[in-house]
């Protein structure tokens, strides 16, 4: 049984069809990378999974819990969100809370876990990303790469069944992208299910079990990285990959 299953997800935004009936199935422990040009609906799709932007119609299943986008009760949504974690493009850290509190907040407030236990868990995770010494710092005192690693720890702390990554490296300075990708690779190795929206082709090639190419609100092509990235069948996939892989070699000064 797949860990995440989307069926006929449709969404209109501002009079335009952003998602035109997307079906996606993600197996347990799989890393799925969603590629696509901007405006293709990939971030919107990701946000329909945990109902941050619910779809107009279609069903979302996470870890055996199925919720209908068209008619959902807020308790169902809450239950669904408690099975998922999310890492945001702009980190989304709670600015009024320290690094430690950012990670423990979900554990103590939502899961009702004791403070000491939550802190122990937070420190374990911070050790793994080499940020234990920043536990008492506020987000504004950290670099973008450090903030994003804290964001990953916050998502991991809740032991979700799937983690959604929404362009986690897009807001970072180029030299900080590496540290975040390295952390994401380490997360992938733990066997947790991941759905990643990104432009990092090398990450997709190296880590993904499945690559999905989206354009115009539909999935154009999906398969292994070898199939989609190295031997794309669809003209649109080919054009997109060319544009991002060969961009830097198009001209000389």
């Amino acid at each position: 049984m797949p860990m995440v299953e989307l069926k006929q997800i449709k969404k209109r935004l501002g009079g335009e069809d952003v998602l035109n009936g997307v079906d996606l199935s993600v197996g347990e422990g799989d890393v799925v990378v969603i590629l696509g040009p901007s405006g293709s609906g990939k971030t919107t799709l990701l946000r329909t999974i945990n109902f941050l932007n619910p779809a107009d119609s279609g069903t979302v299943t996470v870890g055996g819990l199925t919720v209908d986008s068209a008619k959902h009760h807020h308790k169902e949504v809450l239950a669904l969100r408690r099975k998922t974690g999310m890492v945001f493009q702009n980190y989304g850290l709670f600015k009024n809370k320290t690094v430690l509190r950012n990670i423990t907040e979900g554990l103590t407030v939502v899961r009702k876990i004791k403070k000491e236990e939550a802190e122990k868990r937070a420190y374990e995770l911070l050790e793994k990303v080499n940020l234990a010494d920043k536990a008492g710092a506020y987000p504004a005192e950290l670099s973008g790469g450090q903030q994003q690693r804290v964001g990953i720890c916050r998502a991991l702390a809740l032991s979700p069944e799937v983690i959604l990554f929404d362009e986690p490296t897009s807001a970072l300075d180029p030299e900080l992208v590496g540290e975040v990708l390295k952390t994401m690779k380490a997360v992938a190795l733990t066997g947790i299910t991941m759905i990643v929206v990104t432009h990092e082709i090398s990450f997709a090639r190296e880590v993904a079990d499945k690559v999905v190419y989206m354009e115009g609100g539909v999935i154009v092509e999906e398969g292994t990285p070898r199939e989609v990235i190295d031997h794309p069948k669809d003209e649109r996939t080919l054009r997109f990959l060319r544009s991002i892989l060969e961009d830097s070699m198009d001209y000389m000064i």
């Binding site: 974690g85 980190y91 979900g106 809740l158």
Partner: peptide, 10 residues
């Protein structure tokens, strides 16, 4: 974005 993040942790 912080409200989204709050929702995302449940």
């Amino acid at each position: 974005g912080q409200l989204d993040a709050a929702y995302s942790v449940g």
